[in-house]
């Protein structure tokens, strides 16, 4: 029998459900199916859930439901989740300006990967990245699907401030940061589409299972997307 999934406490108000220990679309489907199942159950005492790459956190109120009965329920839901269909993801095509001031690391990524800058842009922008989950801070989408050929390490010294909308890659991962923040990723372009708005609900346009493509456009065209919502680019 497989040792996965595994269930264990994460503090005194959280339960962590772990699936196979790898970043993989199928493993992530199990996580998302379980998330959908738990949400549709609406059990009092479950405060919220956070599905991630291969794990799912169930935050609960120990005064309303005890640990052991909840673990039993989760085990039941894991079985039930195998039978449900996930809704299809959407594809967002975000206008992105590559290189120059908006992509300060494009040159270095080209050198590291022994590709031309145009090749880096072509390979990156033809990739349909899958949103594995939303997390970190301010609705960061964890993206999967970066081609092996674009594997580059993180910066030795992280930048203290990278502007929101910057599109980058490092260590086999890609992201588009939602707000200005420090980062060790290699940024090769920038989208001006609104990726995070604390006054909107939901504050983040993407859901896990969605796909994002960073379409190469001129700076002028990229800037025209300023202030627009991501749903305008479905």
């Amino acid at each position: 029998m497989s040792k996965w999934p595994k269930i264990c406490p994460s503090g005194d108000r959280g339960i962590l459900v772990e699936f196979e220990n790898r970043i993989d679309p199928e493993v992530n489907r199990s996580v998302r199916s379980l998330a959908l199942t738990i949400e549709s159950e609406n059990l009092p005492g479950i405060n919220e859930i956070l599905p991630a790459y291969r794990t799912l956190l169930v935050a609960y109120d120990p005064l309303k439901i005890e640990y052991r009965p909840l673990v039993e329920k989760i085990n039941f839901w894991i079985k039930k989740a195998k039978t449900i269909d996930l809704p299809p993801g959407r594809i967002f095509r975000l206008p992105t300006v590559y290189g120059g001031a908006h992509g300060p690391d494009l040159k270095m990524v080209a050198e590291t990967t022994h590709l031309s800058q145009a090749e880096v842009i072509r390979v990156f922008s033809e990739t349909r990245f899958m949103v594995y989950f939303i997390g970190f801070i301010c609705g960061l989408a964890y993206l999967g699907g970066l081609p092996e050929i674009l594997r580059v390490p993180r910066l030795a010294t992280p930048r203290t401030l990278v502007p929101g909308g910057s599109v980058g890659l490092a260590g086999g991962q890609a992201n588009a940061i939602t707000t200005d923040q420090p980062s060790g990723f290699n940024y090769i372009g920038r989208t001006f589409v609104n990726l995070y708005d604390p006054l909107l609900f939901p504050p983040v346009p993407f859901l896990s299972g969605d796909e994002i493509q960073f379409m190469p456009v001129t700076e002028e065209e990229a800037l025209r997307a300023q202030g627009k919502q991501a749903v305008d680019f479905l």
């Binding site: 994460s10 991630a52 291969r54 794990t55 799912l56």
Partner: peptide, 29 residues
């Protein structure tokens, strides 16, 4: 592999020195 973080979680990065994640912490790490 990045996973959810509960309030009060104590992570230990490569330097071995613990960090307690609190009220305004990132939700995954």
């Amino acid at each position: 592999i990045s996973e959810p973080i509960s309030r009060g979680a104590i992570q230990v990065p490569g330097d071995g020195l613990p960090i307690i994640l609190l009220w305004d912490a990132q939700v995954s790490g």
